[in-house]
Amino acid sequence: MTVATRRIAANGFDFAVDEAGEGDRLALCLHGFPESRFSWRYQLPLLAEMGYRVWAPDLRGYGETEPKPREVSAYLIDRLMEDVAALIDASGAKSITLIGHDWGAGVAWAFAANRVRPLERLVIMNVPHPAIMATQLRRNWAQLTKSWYMFFFQLPGLPEWGATANDGRAIRRAFHGMAIDKSNFTPDVLDRYAADAQRPGAMRGMINWYRAAFRLGGKLRGPWPVIETPTLMIWGEADAALGVELLDGTDAYVRDLTIRRLPNVSHWVQQEAPQTVNPILAEWLAAPRV
């Protein structure tokens, strides 16, 4: 299955988008931090073979997407949802399946809850519902400790310097160090992520997602209506950044919820364990919904 990179003009940005497949059923894949569209390399062929047109964009502030705004307010969740809506509109697709990992999943949660555009299916990987995350950060000392980096990212300048110093050594360690099975994080993969993070303005833009969430909140703070879209959560249980207890209570926010937990798989679930993730995706997406 051929994967091609396109440029898509949407919401004032020139998005770099990896595309596979064709047709009017769009699977839009939203990556997390500190990733890029490259993180979906194992899922694009599968989804295309299932009859989807698959788009995996570099999100605002990341990779080859331009421009990369400097101001924190440009990364408010409301603006990020506008990007997703604009990409969907640009696709002209008639049905939308939204798939997100990490921060991309955070945007996907907000997008589905706010019903910005109709969705056929929602797939979330290793990020809790925002309401649960907010509660856990207030009450769960273990999770608060794991989330130390979110607070560090509020500092000006220092996080950008630390992440990109020594040819992006911290970015490389984030993937290789956290992964349980490191076989899919070869030197060339780590080079790709380190190079993307070192593009002009990229690291500032990437970290500004966290700054905007902490300082501005916007629709990330709710209120949270129940999501009616059928939703699949895939969760690597060996996530060093997010405890598995963050799954608890999700059914209060989602009407039709399926959870698949993967033992001994890290936060980088779709990259680390595509041999497990892809069959789960294929079975759930193909199953009829009542």
Rank of each mutant, 00 (worst) to 15 (best):
E71A: 15
V72R: 00
S73F: 01
L76W: 02
L76P: 05
E82Y: 08
A85V: 09
A85Q: 14
L87D: 08
I88M: 01
I88C: 10
D89L: 05
S91K: 08
G92A: 11
A93T: 01
S95V: 12
S95W: 04
S95N: 07
T97I: 12
T97F: 04
L98T: 03
D102A: 04
G104W: 06
A105M: 06
A105F: 00
G106I: 07
V107F: 12
A108L: 11
A108C: 07
W109H: 02
A110I: 10
A110V: 15
N114E: 05
V116Q: 06
R117F: 06
R117C: 14
R117W: 13
L119Q: 02
V127K: 13
P128T: 04
H129T: 09
P130K: 14
P130G: 07
T135K: 09
L137H: 05
L137A: 11
R138S: 03
N140G: 06
Q143E: 15
T145Q: 09
K146H: 03
K146V: 12
S147L: 07
S147C: 06
Y149C: 04
F151K: 01
F152R: 09
F153I: 03
Q154F: 05
L155H: 02
P156E: 05
G157W: 15
G157D: 14
L158T: 04
L158R: 10
P159Y: 13
T164N: 06
N166G: 13
D167F: 01
R169T: 12
R169C: 03
R169W: 04
R169H: 02
A170H: 13
R172L: 04
R173S: 14
A174D: 03
G177L: 03
D181W: 10
T186Q: 09
P187W: 09
D188E: 15
V189M: 08
R192K: 05
Y193H: 04
A194T: 03
A195W: 03
D196G: 02
A197C: 11
Q198E: 13
R199H: 03
A202C: 15
M203D: 08
R204V: 13
G205V: 11
G205D: 07
M206D: 11
N208S: 08
N208D: 14
W209G: 00
W209D: 00
R211Q: 13
A212F: 01
